[in-house]
């Protein structure tokens, strides 16, 4: 019988215990893209918010997450990794590759896919109109 937490390295543990950028942007923030993925009854639910700066890059991120330690740590690590990227780059960001780098067990691939889907859903709402119009209403979470 093995330790079920053996697959979590120190990076995963740190980000699980003290996740970066958790929460949601306060009302009134502008240029926010939001997307979600997963279902609580299936054990995982992720909502991601991306704040896009005037030059078309991601300035900051927020998220809510319900899920296993890997899902939580991946949200935190992803939120850090996305800063400075364009929404198009964020949509192509591979959380699965990140999970592999962290040495997460294969059965945690679903967690990575869920986070990736939430990011992609948010980034997919970006369009040229958003880039020039600062007054895009906040998308429903």
């Amino acid at each position: 019988m093995s330790d079920p937490f053996a697959g979590y390295n120190d990076t995963v543990r740190t980000h699980f215990r003290t996740p970066r950028n958790a929460g949601r942007f306060a009302a009134g923030h502008e240029r926010i893209l939001a997307g979600s993925a997963g279902q609580r009854r299936h054990g995982r639910e992720v909502e991601f918010q991306l704040q896009v700066t005037a030059d078309g890059r991601i300035g900051d991120c927020r998220y809510h997450v319900y899920g296993c330690p890997a899902t939580i740590a991946l949200c935190s690590l992803t939120s850090e990794a996305l800063k400075g990227r364009t929404p198009a780059e964020a949509a192509g960001f591979s959380v699965v590759a990140l999970a592999d780098q962290l040495g997460l067990p294969a059965e945690k691939r679903d967690a990575a896919v869920t986070v990736e889907d939430a990011v992609r859903a948010a980034a997919g709402r970006y369009n040229a109109a958003l880039a020039v119009s600062p007054a895009v209403p906040q998308l429903q979470a």
């Binding site: 019988m1 079920p4 937490f5 699980f16 215990r17 995982r44 899920g67 296993c68 330690p69 899902t71």
Partner: peptide, 24 residues
């Protein structure tokens, strides 16, 4: 809240998520 995260968060407590004989 999700169970594995709760148990992992309380990792410094020796508690059980169920019977030890099946807890892995």
């Amino acid at each position: 809240i999700e169970g594995e995260s709760l148990l992992f968060a309380c990792h410094d407590l020796a508690v059980s998520g169920g019977s030890a004989c099946t807890s892995a």
